[in-house]
Design a protein around this nucleic acid. Structure first.
Lengths: 193, 193
DNA sequence: ATCATTTCTTAACTTAAGTGAACGAGTTGT
DNA sequence: ACAACTCGTTCACTTAAGTTAAGAAATGAT
């Protein structure tokens, strides 16, 4: 399990054995059952999440409907906007599957950062990278139709289509479940001829 | 002009007079004419842009059509994804109006950062903040219809609707210019009754 | 194993966006 | 001053997504 974490970190900085041990001593790892709600609307939190195994999902509830905005799977990290802005959360995070997560709160990261300044640098690089990735995703979403977005997802994250309920996927693509069904039928029809 | 810059920076860190002078000595300010293309598809660059006055716009050209993805106006900053990923740019940036820009390349920021470490911290905070903002914007886009998106824009950035050509706005909202015209007529019709 | 609930799909109908074309208003260049 | 473009709007028509409803399939709970 730790291998996943250290493999991930090694993409950004290199750690000594001692540093690895300090990280492990912090009791960052948590096993969380499917369905667990990690963050609720209105809640204040300082927690960031890193997915070692499983799938977590962020969503709003607007007019009584869940609006899924993102899925995070193995090796992906999520710092909710409310942690940055220090305001109550606008949205929910819950576990789509049984998960093993690394959960770090702000106090903890401060301690780690002061002991290992390079860790802070890693977070900075990581944040910049995420911002660039986020913007590209946004741009792709904006410039394509729901059908193109689905085909795109099929290319880039085929696992999601298997492991995530259709109605959550539909919401993630910005459409209704019925439209997703129809759209898939349409694509299937096209590929036949 | 400098006041705008230092006013912006003061939201994150405080600078001594000496530090301000060093920044000013770097010749960061540039006057750029409307229509100037600051970044072209395929180009490699290390430049980041900060808008002191005017409006710049990022867009892709897909199937021969401009797809506008963002506008940056006074006090907004843009680091193109290609700067982070160190790959050729996928998109274009051009000036929608005569602009005064602060343009910084990577070498320069490295020098500034090594002389003023707190500057790097500011960039980090800024980047985190941007990421949070970006995600919220994305979420709003995803969870609303074109009409809601237009009304939302009318609330949040009414200036854009005045200063930006309609066809660029339409593309920014993810629709065709004709649809934007129709949508506006529809809203006007509703507000009458 | 059965019942209840949730999830997925299909269908008919409504609403809104895409498309192609036309027109007038405003701009640019010569 | 005029022609050539660009831009915004409107219209008729096409296409796809939203809506409402119904039924089949899968999931969960007792």
């Amino acid at each position: 399990m730790q291998d996943i974490l250290f493999g991930f970190i090694s993409k950004y900085i290199s750690l000594t054995e001692e540093e690895k041990n300090v990280l492990l001593s912090l009791e960052l790892f948590h096993s969380v059952k499917k369905g667990t709600v990690l963050l609720t609307e209105g809640q204040k939190t300082q927690n960031s999440f890193f997915v070692l195994k499983g799938c977590i999902r962020s969503y709003y509830i607007k007019d009584g409907e869940e609006k899924t905005t993102a899925f995070y799977t193995e090796m992906e990290a999520l710092t909710p906007p409310c942690v940055i802005s220090r305001t109550p959360s606008d949205y929910y995070i819950s576990c789509n599957e049984d998960c093993i997560l690394l959960i770090s709160d702000a106090d903890m990261s401060e301690e780690v950062n002061s002991r290992f300044p390079k860790f802070e640098i890693m977070c900075m690089k990581f944040s910049e990278e995420l911002l660039a990735k986020e913007r590209i995703e946004f741009d792709e979403f904006k410039t394509s139709s729901p059908e193109q977005r689905y085909l795109n997802l099929l290319q880039k994250r085929p696992d999601l289509i298997q492991r995530v309920p259709q109605h959550q996927l539909a919401s993630y693509l910005g459409i209704k479940p019925q439209s997703l069904s129809r759209l898939r039928a349409r694509i299937l029809e096209k590929s036949k001829t």
